[in-house]
């Protein structure tokens, strides 16, 4: 039984997704899920959801929707112009929306993908435990105007009754400026002999054939020295490959789980989030890091998310107490 209905007014290119189908690769099915995992986690943290809760991934184009109950939302990822009934509201913060108010996210810039979470999330079908769309299996898909999503929970507005000022300002980790993509050496780097370093010489231009399966880019191409047949093997998300042709291929979360190309380098998990925000026509630079540096960066990211979760929890607890004492509303 749903608590309310969210109706899409303008769909743009929006999908319901989560952190991915983690059991999928075992069965030959890509993990998929939010391409910018960090922004998706942060969006859910900001509204007090589990990090893997279903949320909206908005790619490049404008989104508008209305809900028939009061909800609490948060927008993260690419910068956009968020309005509630035409009034500008901040990204990267929990934002209350009253029943019937139009929520619009327009003019995404500085990145390609934004994430919008709703406290309580949506009731959506799961496949192998995940709602992430899979274009190959034909599961899930782009929302269309008029589509509806079942909301699990109403959240009474969190407003300061006296001043209608913002009640909180949370320090949210930002998307790194500039597109620098960290990679560690791949397991097949020797197949490229001395040419592997070309990856770090010049920026690469991302081409329009890029998508959730992989990004294609032009620039100096390392050359595969080894020849002969390579057996299909599991390839990691982030694998940098040099397929026949004149483009470099970097696999993302929609990648086929097995392939027969040597893996030159692998994008670090943190930098996969950077790749999720690069638009075709933009340039990026690869930077070689050691496994230890990559691991340290991952740990630092986790610490930042843990700290944010604690702060959000404290804010909600305080607002709940405030609200109960002054207005009698129950927030959670």
């Amino acid at each position: 039984m749903s608590a309310g209905i969210l109706t899409i007014v303008e769909a743009g290119s929006t999908h319901v997704t989560d952190l991915g189908r983690r059991r999928g690769p075992r069965y030959g099915v890509p993990v998929n899920g939010a391409l910018d995992q960090r922004s998706a986690r942060i969006a859910n943290i900001l509204v007090g959801n589990p990090e893997n809760a279903a949320l909206l991934e908005i790619t490049a184009l404008d989104l508008e929707f209305v809900a028939d109950i009061d909800i609490l939302i948060a927008v993260t990822g690419a910068d956009g112009h968020l309005t509630i009934d035409g009034v500008g509201r901040p990204s990267g913060q929990p934002v209350s929306v009253r029943a019937g108010e139009a929520v619009a996210l327009r003019q995404l810039q500085g990145g390609l993908r934004a994430y919008l979470s709703v406290r309580g999330s949506f009731d959506v079908p799961l496949l192998l435990g995940s709602c992430a769309p899979d274009s190959v299996l034909g599961f899930g898909g782009r929302l269309a105007a008029g589509a509806t999503l079942d909301l699990r929970q109403a959240t009474s507005p969190l407003f300061n009754d006296h001043f209608s000022a913002e009640l909180y300002s949370l320090d949210v980790p930002r998307i790194p400026a500039g597109f620098v993509v960290d990679v560690t050496d791949g397991p097949d780097i020797d197949d490229f002999a001395g040419t592997a370093d070309r990856l770090f010489e010049q920026p690469y231009l991302v081409t329009p054939t890029s998508n959730h399966i992989g990004l294609r880019m032009t620039g100096p191409l390392p050359e595969r020295i080894s020849r002969g047949e390579v057996l299909s093997r599991g390839v990691p998300v982030g694998a940098v490959e040099v397929p026949p042709g004149d483009e470099l291929l970097v696999l993302h979360r929609g990648r086929g789980v097995t392939a027969g190309y040597p893996v030159l380098a692998v994008v670090t998990s943190s930098s996969l989030d950077v790749l999720a925000q690069v638009r075709p026509g933009q340039r990026l630079r690869f930077r070689r890091v050691s496994s230890a540096e990559a691991a340290a960066r991952t740990r630092a990211d986790l610490v930042a998310l843990d700290a944010l979760r604690l702060r959000v929890g404290a804010v909600f607890a305080a607002l709940d107490a405030l609200s109960l004492s002054t207005t009698g509303r129950t927030l959670l």
Partner: peptide, 22 residues
């Protein structure tokens, strides 16, 4: 350990680096 992908002569073992080190 998030997932294991065994193929012909190899297995790729994917982890959550938050929980275990390589």
């Amino acid at each position: 350990v998030e997932c294991v992908i065994p193929t012909y002569d190899a297995a790729l073992i994917e982890i959550d680096p938050a929980e275990v080190s390589l």
